[in-house]
């Protein structure tokens, strides 16, 4: 297997209602481009980007989940292994903001207790269609002690900064007696919803 070209591996997760722009945010971050014609995410998607922070090479493994309710059984099983979660709403869609409370409950239920969180109010380029004032985002973030930013995947506002700040918060928590990177598994530790569907357990039938 290829030699490790990074010092640390962080697993991040993007969640939020369908259509708020999760896939666009990730695409902007990983490919520095904006595409208006993404199909809706079915299940879960995956991208990797390596960044440098405080002299360390950090490999970000970012999971993009589907927003619609139907996919939650599939997607909540990834919460457990996540070190950082970005919770996205759409500033032109107040329903997506109201649902933030629901997404936070999901995190409480399924993620590690010490997971780093961040709330993003996306599509801030569309100020003329704004339904959620910025201070409402700030208030809910403050209430929960979470970082908050308004972003635009379209105009590339705060996208890189958001990922860097989230990564930095995780980095600051990482104990100085860090494990040797070669010992880090090059994958996430996703907790399976049920032991039965672990592909590792191929039943020795007949």
């Amino acid at each position: 297997m290829a030699k490790k070209t990074y010092d640390l591996l962080f697993k991040l997760l993007l969640i939020g209602d369908s259509g708020v722009g999760k896939t666009c945010i990730l695409f902007r971050f990983s490919d520095d481009a904006f595409n208006t014609t993404f199909i809706s995410t079915i299940g879960i998607d995956f991208k990797i980007k390596t960044i440098e922070l405080k002299g360390k090479k950090i490999k970000l493994q970012i999971w993009d989940t589907a927003g619609q309710e139907r996919f939650h059984t599939i997607t909540t099983s990834y919460y457990r292994g996540a070190m950082g979660i970005m919770l996205v709403y759409d500033i032109t869609n107040s329903k997506s903001f109201e649902n933030i409370a629901k997404w936070l409950r999901n995190i409480d239920e399924h993620a590690n207790e010490d997971v780093e969180k961040m709330i993003l109010g996306n599509k801030c380029d569309m100020d003329e269609n704004r339904q959620v004032p910025k201070d409402r985002g700030e208030v809910i973030a403050r209430e929960h002690g979470i970082k908050f930013m308004e972003t635009s995947a379209k105009n590339n506002i705060n996208i890189e900064r958001a990922f860097e700040e989230l990564a930095e918060a995780i980095l600051n928590k990482t104990p100085s007696g860090r494990p040797d990177p070669s010992e880090l598994p090059d994958r996430i530790r996703a907790v399976n919803p049920s032991p039965g569907d672990r592909p590792g357990v191929i039943s020795r039938c007949c």
């Binding site: 079915i42 299940g43 099983s77 530790r189 672990r198 592909p199």
Partner: peptide, 22 residues
């Protein structure tokens, strides 16, 4: 291949969920 996918923990949910559903 099956052993490798299991070892690397590449679960079918990551890809086959979409393959099959759609």
């Amino acid at each position: 291949v099956a052993r490798l996918l299991a070892q690397q923990e590449i679960h079918p949910q990551y890809y086959a969920f979409r393959w099959i559903t759609l």
